[in-house]
Structures are given as C-alpha cells and as structure tokens.
Design a binder for these strands. Structure first.
Lengths: 176, 176
DNA sequence: AGCAACATGTAATTGGTTACATGATTTA
DNA sequence: TAAATCATGTAACCAATTACATGTTGCT
C-alpha cells in the first residue's frame, strides 16, 4: 500500500513521469522514508493504472511510458494522508544489537557502539547534504515536500549518536 | 537472518525454552526491536535445529519441545554481534506522512501531526512502563539485556514528539 | 462440562530483493 | 564503434502476515 502512496505522492508533486523517472526519485529523494527498486515499481505502476489511479501515455522516445495521476489517484492519496494511522513495525538490526549488547565484553560492546555511531554520522551527513542542496535551489513552489521528513531523520540520527555516546560512557566510565 | 539472531539471543540469555515460550518473549520483551509471530518462529526453530545451532528435546507436557542453544549457535550469535554491519532499510509510514505533509492544508497537517504525536506518546509510555518493571524486579544477573535498546527507543520517541511540536509551530505559528 | 491458556503446526498471500534479460539512444 | 545511460520488464527466492487447523492441560 505505501509504495503505491509514495508513487502517487511523487506524481502529484512533480507531474507526469515515467517508471524510470520515479525509480530515480526513489534513489535520490524519497529514499530516506521509503525504499523501492525498479523491479517493484514497474509492476506496481501497471496495477495502479489497472485500478484507475493513474493513466499511461505509451511510447515516448525509447519505449518510455508516461504516467499521470488521475482524480481518483489524488483522492486516494489525500484519504491515506488524513485517515491512515501509520503502523511502523519495529524491525531494526541496529536496535537488536543494542538489545543484546550486554552479551559482549566491554571492549567488544564499545566497538559495536562506535560502529553504530559511524553509521548514524554517515546518515546525518547524507541528510544534511540533501537539505542543503534542497534549500539552495528550492524547487519553485513545492520545495517543502520532504522537508519535514528530512528534519525528522536528522533529529533521529542525532538522537542515536547521543545515545551511543551516553551508553559507551555507561559501559566504560573511563572512555568518556 | 535477524529473526534467527533474536531467537539465539533469547535462548542464550534465558536458557532452554519452547517455541511457545519464545513467542511469548517476542510479545512481551524483544518486540520493541524485532517482531515475529508463532507462525514465523516455529518453522525457523526447525531450520535452526537442522543447521545445528540449537538442539531439540521433544515431548514435554503437551507435545512441548524444548530448544537449547549449541556451541555453534553461541558462536554464530557472537559473530553476528561483533561483525554484522546493521542495515536498517527505511520504510516508515509515519515518515512518509511527514514527507507528504505539505500536500495538505494547514488544519489537516496539524491533525496528522497530533496523530503522530499521540502514537509516539503511547509508545513512550509503553517503553517507560517496561523499563520500570524491568528495574523493579531486575532479573538477577541478566537484567541489562534489552536495557540499552529500551533507552534508545525512549529517546527516539521523545525526539519524534519534539519534532512534531516544532513542525506544528512552523506550520501554524499561532497554535504554539 | 466448558473455557482459558498451553502448544504446535500449515497454507495462502503479499511485500521485497536479487538476478536475469533485452533493447534504444547518446556521447566519446 | 564501444561504452554509458536510458528504459522496461520477468523470475526465483526470501521474509512476513493472516487465516486455517488441531490437540492438551488446568481451572472453575
């Protein structure tokens, strides 16, 4: 369901686009909230067209197919946004390592923590870079799309880094 | 893979247990980092036994089967903890709503934010309650298992609440 | 006797990843 | 003309959810 919503959202914001275009947007823009590859996107677009949420204009330049959101699609998207109670199943390898951390010796645990910190720092840098470019060329009217989610992601990364520092100090008071 | 690790972790911490016991632990303890139901757990235990990571003592009281972690299982678990670089695919309905928030009118967006806040507050309360009981009866030696992950979860929930308040104020400066 | 909790499984379906497969256009 | 990028698809597999299915023990 959410893949469908993400696609409707992108089509709604940036107008008609091909599966290829949308795949690129998944790689470069929406990927920090939802991920999908072309092998998942192409079949989903076909189903969405069959369901009347989008229309297809076949045969652009290289067999390129342009999809446009319909009124029904816009309605479906709006309904999901205002009605859907989000359920985010917790399934995180990082949190699982945190959970089982006491099974390790202090030096091993500190290693794991520094790895988790490094991952969070990389993510933080990526998100901040994205925000910087976003702010620099802020895409006309719709520049706010993605902005709040970016902020949320940055805050979560900072929180993870903070937690790791705090936890390391608790495991080894000397290393702080 | 991670389901397997979670099961090995629980067996390592609390000693031999049945599929039923482990299912209960998934519901009550490890569920805030990894979720699974019995229909996923039973077949996985069978595979793990076939792979030599655990052994089975069949036929307790009601057809109850007791699983015990082997040396190989312990090694596999340890290796995963110290070597595995965690990859947490981002796929969050809540973040997707945040991403698409600017598609809504201000009042609609504020509604969505208050729903996200409510969800985070519920989670926060759950995690704090868990921590309180955990600290009260801190299970002998192994009470620290799960503790750091609990702390991480609580911090993330607080961050989400903070973000939602901040974002609401940005959308409607009057409502703050 | 009946209900709740214990206890284990399988089947059907959906969602997602990796790998396979093919062809068109642009650019160096 | 060769490589890169554009462009679309399918197949095999793994992970996860929901529903179906069955039997046991303890308690009231």
């Amino acid at each position: 369901m959410s893949l469908r919503i993400a696609l409707l959202g992108l089509l709604s914001v940036s107008g008609p686009a091909s599966g290829y275009d949308l795949t690129k947007k998944f790689e470069t823009s929406i990927n920090y909230v939802w991920q999908a590859g072309h092998s998942q996107i192409y079949p989903e677009l076909a189903k969405m067209a069959a369901d009347g949420l989008i229309t297809v204009e076949p045969e652009g330049p290289r067999g390129r197919k342009i999809y446009t959101i319909t009124r029904e699609g816009t309605d479906e998207l709006h309904r999901w946004l205002v009605e859907r109670v989000p359920t985010d199943p917790v399934r995180s390898e990082g949190a699982l390592q945190a959970f089982l951390l006491p099974l390790l010796s202090a030096p091993e645990a500190l290693d794991v923590l520094s790895r988790l910190t490094a991952a969070a720092e990389t993510r933080l840098a990526d998100l901040r870079a994205l925000r910087a470019t976003k702010l620099a060329l802020h895409e006309s009217d719709q520049w706010k799309i993605g902005y709040y989610a970016l902020d949320l992601g940055i805050r979560h990364a900072l929180t993870t880094i903070d937690w790791a520092r705090h936890t390391a100090a608790e495991i080894d008071p000397g290393s702080a």
